[in-house]
Design a binder for these strands. Structure first.
Lengths: 338, 338
DNA sequence: TTGTACGCGTTATCAG
DNA sequence: CTGATAACGCGTACAA
């Protein structure tokens, strides 16, 4: 609710004895203004506590200085670092950040809530947006950058993500080569999740490379959630599935899996080796500390945001950025504490 | 960057053969319009893919339909649930959410980035805002709600937080009464943190109630961070401080403390009992599962947002809401698994 | 270097 | 119930 009495550019102009155009100039620092007049304006601005109305600015200038972020849900552990990166990059460049989650709303409701009319560009995480809207925005040249997800066919939208396949291979090969595991479970993410898809591919590649036949029974559903992973591992343990290691598609699922294992009286890493993916902040505090594939999540957020800003400025950008992942050895894989 | 060719209210009016006023009416569903004309307008809207320009709307109507959130940093574990609550409540009421972190910016930069000119109201977490600006906003009747922090003297700003003192007492009394602890460490939060202050008060009250003298040497600095807590506990262990339990001001610090304990060869709960505060999602997955004071963090976010929205609508609201905390017993306190 | 005047797209007021 | 039309506050050609 706007309050009645705040100063407008006109008030400032009057007090400074100049035109509103001049005020606009010194406030935006665009065209040159005689230092002396500029100072008078600045004084007036301060005296009146003048702050330009964002809406008026947008209306007149046609750009919002705001970036939109669309996510399906805000899932803490993994998402927080990314958000930090995004917020930081946006802030440093002078952009505001409008956040929108799609999870709890009906499709009808969240149409058009974020788009050309209130943002200069959009950051889209996972498939939180309808293809039709995406296509429309893309066709009018509206800047969009995807996070952890490649663009649908035909759309020219850059992506920033991490080296999923390579990371997964690193993990599985470590399990095979160093710890001599042969029956390695892969704990998958949500159906259709691209990260999980690549990680599974890396997993299979590593097996193949070492002549270990792929067993579909070892691909289990973790849904990138502790709870689901816990449930799943408990169930297969009941059914006496045999395995000597788990490569979890993400750390959260690894956490749940470890709970299930402990519940069943199995020890990590003695009975089952475990490696996760992402390297969430708490990974090193688990018992045992979780060996995992480190993904530069905050950096992904930063990168994507910078990319988007360049897009907003109509600069050309690379269509895909893959940030490096690396194996972070702790103890859950069976390596000794240092 | 606004794209050139999108339809305006005038285009719609023309196509529907009505005035722009009528279009505005059916779009906003305010004044009654003959169903037949309304339908014509709706058709035109759809045909032209018309979406009202937010900026124009704001400029004309004087309110932004946007809520601002100011936080010092986005710290994952604890903050994510709160953000979820805020986002959900805001979204359900049709408000957008503008997020702003203050941590990495200079004071100069983050003046006025969020305020009367781009939001209808502000959610402020901890002391992420200057008193002067706060006072100014408050004096012009701008809606603000504090999260986990009471307003500075003289300002009339409602707060939503949790029953810190009661929760702390619950924890410490459990340690004393059930587990017969006598030398209980309190792991404090950041200097001046209000939550930590109340929790310490609860801790001291519980000791007092049971005739245990307060020992200042047992109040240690955890800073609500795993890393700091780990460092602190390691240090006092070196210095052979004696204690039989730790009540940690928050779960994150508890995690760090547990790492330090394990590092030193001490077992939880056999050698040291441990209780945390907040009940972050991962608490139950720690080894041993962390007994902690459950705080309804997501609900705090929801509540605060709803309060703010009522303030925006100029309704009167309670000046303080204390959400209940409760003891969630798991195993780190020495209680057996169920 | 500075000022004038118009346009941005809505909402709101007031007649009709 | 509907249509003109005046704000809303700022940026920016264009003119001086």
């Amino acid at each position: 609710m706007e309050t009645n009495n705040s100063a407008t550019i006109e008030d400032v102009a009057r007090l400074a004895g100049v035109s509103i155009a001049t005020v606009s100039r010194v406030v935006n620092g665009k065209s040159p203004v005689v230092p002396e007049t500029a100072q008078r304006v600045l004084d007036a601005v301060r005296a009146l506590n003048y702050v330009p109305r964002a809406a008026a600015r947008i209306l007149a200038s046609k750009h919002t200085n705001t970036l939109g972020l669309i996510v399906p849900e805000i899932s803490g552990e993994f998402f927080a670092p990314m958000l930090r990166g995004i917020e930081a990059a946006a802030g440093e460049a002078g952009f505001d950040l409008l956040i929108h989650t799609t999870s709890y709303k009906s499709l009808e409701t969240h149409r058009h809530t974020l788009g050309e009319h209130n943002t200069d560009g959009l950051l889209v995480f996972i498939d939180s947006m309808e293809l039709a809207e995406l296509t429309r925005l893309n066709s009018i040249g509206f800047p969009i950058v995807f996070l952890h997800q490649t663009a649908p066919a035909g759309l020219n939208i850059p992506v920033v993500t991490v080296e999923n396949k390579k990371g997964a291979m690193l993990a599985v090969e470590h399990l095979i080569e160093v710890h001599h595991c042969r029956r390695i479970v892969y704990l998958s993410g949500p159906e259709g999740n691209e990260d999980s898809g690549w990680r599974e591919r890396g997993y299979r590649l590593a097996l193949e490379k070492h002549g270990i036949p792929f067993d579909p029974a070892l691909v289990l559903f973790g849904n990138f959630l502790s709870k689901q992973a816990e449930r799943t591992i408990s169930a297969v343990l009941q059914a006496s599935l045999e395995f000597d290691a788990i490569f979890s598609g993400d750390d959260l699922a690894a956490v749940g899996a470890m709970s299930a294992l402990r519940e069943a009286g199995l020890r990590v890493p003695e009975d089952v080796k475990m490696i996760g993916f992402d390297d969430i902040p708490l990974a090193r505090h688990l018992t045992p500390p979780l060996t995992t594939i480190h993904a530069p999540t905050e950096e992904v957020g930063r990168m994507a945001t910078n990319l988007l800003i360049r897009l907003v400025r109509r600069e050309t950008v690379e269509s895909e950025i893959l940030l490096p992942t690396e194996l972070t050895i702790r103890q859950s894989c069976g390596c000794r504490a240092l």
